[in-house]
Amino acid sequence: MEAEIALTVDGTRRSLSVDTRTTVLDALREHLGATSPKKGCDHGQCGACTVLVDGRRVTTCLSLAVAHDGAEITTAEGMADGRELHPMQRSFLDHDGFQCGYCTPGQVCSAVGMLAEAEAGWPSAVTDDLTAPVELDEAEIRERMSGNLCRCGAYSNIVAAIRENVR
């Protein structure tokens, strides 16, 4: 069954008609040509499809497009300012935070969303004092990024890249 929806993708409002079964991920990739979010497991387990929806990191493979009518989506591609990379993207390059690069757009979006969560004071499963200010050490970053898998195993460099962006 078809539904008419609108999504704002990287600052541009786009109207589209989708089958109700279409995920946000497939709407982005197949309907709108926004291919930086990647399809890995397609079951919410790998994080390669992570984007920011209304500023929050989410897995788009388990989100139905029709349920996200009106959403503002930022993909890794949209984080760059023209040819000027987002600082997180720059750090992934500087620290070799990838090999094949397939998980990288999801890692970058997740990292940016994760930093905003930490800045808002959100604790994690490894935070000892739930009410104290968050200090993003390596253990915190690893726990908070556990929803993004990297089959190349670039984790140590990914952590280093993210740490550079911790204020």
Binding site: G44, G47, T50, R56, R57, V58, T59, L62, S63, S110, G113, M114, E117, P123, S124, A125, T127, L130, T131, R144, M145, S146, G147, N148
Partner: peptide, 21 residues
């Protein structure tokens, strides 16, 4: 502050992206 067991249980489940949904 009042129900830390609930915060901890939630944070022990799934991933950051999934908890946001």
């Amino acid at each position: 502050e009042q129900y830390p067991v609930l915060s901890q249980a939630l944070l022990a489940g799934a991933s950051g992206q999934l908890r946001n949904l």
